[in-house]
């Protein structure tokens, strides 16, 4: 069947709630309305307002209470309405969600999931197009996941909900309406595994979340240049599957990391450094980064100049090939 990413996420939540009555969902507008992107559509009708309910506008409250619920044995799945509004909850995320297992010397794990629509490209007003993945990935104790396809959205969200540790689940909002032929339920590769989405020999593109589709598009366009580009979908930002990335970089000798977030101290810097440390001898060129610029996310009418597109990616591949 043809499934959008939004529908895949919705189905994953529904299937998990059917299987496990400890799964509860709450957040701003997730109940009656079904979420501003309708990811929780119909869940309150099916499971009742005890298991899928609206919260006050209170991000720290949402995440902080989820800590208490998980401590009590529930599996809370909370929604941050937008990336830019996840920041009020950062203290709870960093000080408690990420640290609880460690603070308690392994006695209390928090099986909870924090979902949020993330990234740009939908013409939104300010604070609705942020890419906060570096904040979360830098925080030890969190598992950070971002799907690039509808099938992965389903299977990774199911894995997140079954995970023994807290997962920050970044949903690329510009891909909510992306379609894929896939039969649900689908079980994909587990959390912690990157995937080769397109095999190639000339260079490696490394992307996650919203940029997976863009990287694949660039790889197709590269054929005209005579380049056979491999595309890797990182899928799990923490823990990073460096083995898969290193194997590809070793094979092609050239790697380019792509993300929407600003470059400086961004997630791409980690990949570039890690690959350089691991497979320096196999690289024919430095690991290059194709990213947003080091500035606050721009207004909607000019955002396409900020976001990495096919041309910026191909330019980087060309530069890598010049070495």
């Amino acid at each position: 069947m043809t499934v959008t990413m939004a529908a895949a996420l919705n189905t994953a939540l529904r299937d998990a709630m059917r299987e496990d009555d400890s799964v509860v969902i709450y957040g701003e507008d997730v109940g009656t309305l079904g979420g501003v992107f309708r990811i929780t559509d119909g869940l309150q009708a099916e499971f009742g307002a005890e298991r899928c309910f609206d919260s006050p506008v209170s991000e720290s409250g949402i995440v902080g209470t989820a800590v208490g619920m998980a401590l009590y044995g529930l599996r809370p799945v909370v929604e941050m309405q937008f990336d830019g509004f996840s920041y009020p909850a950062l203290d709870q995320v960093i000080s408690h969600v990420a640290k609880y297992r460690n603070r308690t010397r392994g006695r209390v794990g928090l099986p909870m999931t924090i979902r949020m629509p993330y990234g740009g490209g939908i013409g939104a007003v300010e604070h609705h197009s942020e890419s906060p993945e570096a904040y979360y990935s830098h925080t030890a104790g969190l598992t950070v996941v971002s799907p690039g396809t509808p099938g992965d959205a389903y299977s990774l969200l199911r894995s997140a909900l079954a995970h023994p540790d807290p997962v920050v689940f970044l949903e690329p909002k510009r891909r909510y309406w992306m379609k894929e032929e896939v039969e649900l339920p689908v079980s994909g590769e587990p959390i912690g595994r990157a995937l080769v989405r397109r095999a190639g020999a000339t260079a490696t593109l490394i992307a996650y979340g919203p940029m997976v589709a863009t990287a694949l598009e660039a790889a197709e366009a590269a054929v005209a240049e005579g380049w056979d580009v491999e595309v890797i979908d990182v899928r799990t930002l923490t823990p990073l599957d460096l083995d898969t990335l290193a194997a590809s970089a070793t094979k092609t000798g050239r790697a380019v990391v792509v993300h929407e977030a600003p470059r400086f101290a961004g997630y791409g810097a980690e990949i570039a450094a890690a690959l350089t440390e691991r497979v320096f001898g196999h690289l024919a060129a430095p690991v290059l980064r194709v990213t947003g610029f080091d500035l606050p996310y721009p207004p909607a009418k000019i955002e396409h100049h900020f976001l990495p597109g096919v041309d910026r990616i191909l330019d980087a591949v060309a530069r890598a090939l010049e070495y």
Binding site: G68, M69, A70, G73, L74
Partner: peptide, 16 residues
């Protein structure tokens, strides 16, 4: 920060 954990645990207990 712990006040929220208390509220959350209490909410969970009530649900159960």
């Amino acid at each position: 920060t712990q006040a929220l954990h208390a509220t959350g645990l209490a909410m969970a207990a009530r649900m159960r």
